[in-house]
Write a protein that binds this DNA or RNA. Structure first.
Length: 457
RNA sequence: CGGAGUGUAGCUCAGCCUGGUAGAGCACCGUCUUCGGGAGGCGGGGGCCGGUGGUUCGAAUCCACUCACUCCGACCA
């Protein structure tokens, strides 16, 4: 209430904000008024680099074991990743929806998983002593929706997804957000009339995943997988290579040599290449000659399954087929660990000084550093750059704090902003600012206008 | 769930063995000197030593229980 009143000139203007008030790009931010609690030292609880850097850069704070609050900087990255995942799912023809975090136990009894899932499932009872659970996944719920709403084969295929928090009560949470108990996941579900349809749906998701991870700046290796607790015959894990990966991978060197074209024709080729985790890899039966076999640690960031009628059968998800006969639908599910990706990307992209965000997921594109805000020339130049960059809708974080230069550079390096634009008295004296690329460390002094031209194009 | 650790200031840690007024560095506040890659001086604020119960004249320190967190293993998006 207070906020609205203080910003609103009169009742009418409230409805005309866009037309009457200069739009202020929401993504632009002054560090002096931002919430960025960075740490110079590493908290003792963090063992791996992504966890350490996420704590130090003020992205997250732990609420309890495996459960985290996402502070503004971390939240931005999470939303960026989520946005890319959403765009690619939409482009692949999946429809976004949102299912609840709390589910009734009875649906899980129908599928038989209520007892199978064990202690990993967080069970809750409501005030009426009704058994509920915090969903670790959503096959039952989506199947229930489907069976109640879809009656004809003419409505197929259907592909639905949502991006929602899940909970798995891991015995031993670790590695920060990479193995949390609460995690944000995109899960999609496909419904088809027969195996061929399901296979097409599966491959469409396979392609969408290649596109998604490629946009996130990651190179993934699709590894054929057993379908585990969810069950089924056709399944791939998408692994990214990182030293701290949890599983040991063996794969054909061809993966490193070919460009990953996300096309349907390419799917068959990629699926035919050898890749296995250590528990599946058998040296004596491996078809790849030793000199062509690569090994590395991998982090699983996505998993796709075809599982046929595993849920549709017990839960009675049937449609009328072309001949009018009831036909049980063929299903698949497709997960991407959105919150895990935040940690995974850091594992794959960092140095001693901090995070190096790929441009697509960076919380800000430009870190504008004013080395001496108390100096009139610096303040004017900094403010001018800040206004001009934010005016064109580019995400810029303006370090306008009264801090020492070293601290400012260290902060920008730590939080991994792709471009650093530095304004200082020394450079301004000769009309230049410094432009630094975080990923390469490359620095050059350029005029203000050419810096803007480089960053805004 | 088995095994092993750790809980003292916002963060990193000392003090505990051998009980006697709670400490350092960083961070924070004030101030001075500084100012181009996490500077320095002076002054200041901040802790029920995870919790409960014991032993003792006296417990951060010894004992018991308990809670939390971390690591190794088994498990897993």
């Amino acid at each position: 209430m207070h906020c609205i009143q203080s910003r609103t000139r009169d009742p009418a203007s409230f409805f005309l904000v866009g037309a009457t008030i200069t739009p202020r790009h929401e993504a632009a931010m002054r560090l002096s008024s931002y919430f960025l609690p960075t740490l110079k030292e590493t908290p003792a609880e963090a063992q791996i680099v992504s966890h350490r850097l996420m704590l130090r850069s003020g992205m997250i704070r732990q609420a309890s074991a495996g459960i985290y609050s996402w502070l503004p900087l971390g939240h931005r990255v999470l939303r960026r990743i989520e946005g890319i995942v959403r765009e690619e799912m939409d482009a692949a023809g999946s429809s976004e929806m949102l299912m609840p975090t709390i589910q009734p136990a009875e649906l899980w009894r129908e599928s038989g998983r209520y007892d199978d899932y064990g202690k990993e499932m967080l069970r809750i009872s409501d005030r009426h002593e009704r058994e509920m659970l915090y969903g670790p996944t959503n096959e039952e719920l989506i199947t229930d929706i489907f069976r109640n709403c879809v009656k004809s084969y003419r409505d197929l295929p259907i592909n639905l997804y949502h991006i929602q928090w899940k909970f798995r009560d891991e015995v031993r949470p670790r590695f920060g957000v990479m193995r949390g108990r609460e995690f944000l996941m995109k899960d999609a579900y496909s419904f088809d009339l027969d195996f061929n349809g399901a296979r097409d749906s599966y491959n469409a998701m396979f392609v969408a995943y290649l596109k998604t991870f490629s946009r996130l700046g990651l190179r993934t290796i699709p590894v054929r997988a057993e379908s585990g607790a969810i069950g089924g015959d056709l399944s791939h894990e998408f692994q990214i290579i990182a030293e701290t990966g949890e599983s040991q991978l063996y794969f054909d060197a061809t993966f490193e040599e070919i460009a990953h074209e996300p096309s349907p024709e390419f799917v068959g080729k990629l699926q035919s290449l050898y890749a296995a985790t250590d528990d599946k890899h058998d040296t004596s039966e491996c078809p790849v000659p030793t000199e062509r076999l690569r090994t590395a640690r991998g982090i699983e960031v996505g998993h796709i399954f075809y599982f046929g009628t595993k849920y549709a059968q017990p839960m009675g998800a049937k449609v009328a087929g072309a001949n009018g006969e009831p036909t049980t639908v063929e299903m698949g599910s497709y997960g991407i660990g959105v919150s895990r990706l935040v940690g995974a990307i850091i594992e794959a992209s960092h140095d001693e000084a901090g995070i190096i965000w790929p441009d697509a997921v960076a919380p800000f594109k430009i870190g504008l550093i004013n080395l001496r805000p108390s100096d009139t020339a610096c303040a004017e130049a900094g403010e001018d750059l800040y206004q001009r960059i934010s005016a064109v809708g580019i995400d810029v974080l303006y370090d306008d704090r009264e801090e020492r230069p070293g601290a400012k550079f260290a902060t920008m390096d730590l939080i991994g902003i792709p471009w650093q634009l530095t304004v200082g008295p020394r450079g301004l004296a000769t009309g230049v600012v410094e432009l630094k690329r975080r990923s390469s460390g490359e620095r050059e002094e350029v005029s203000i206008e050419s810096a803007l031209a480089r960053l805004i194009d």
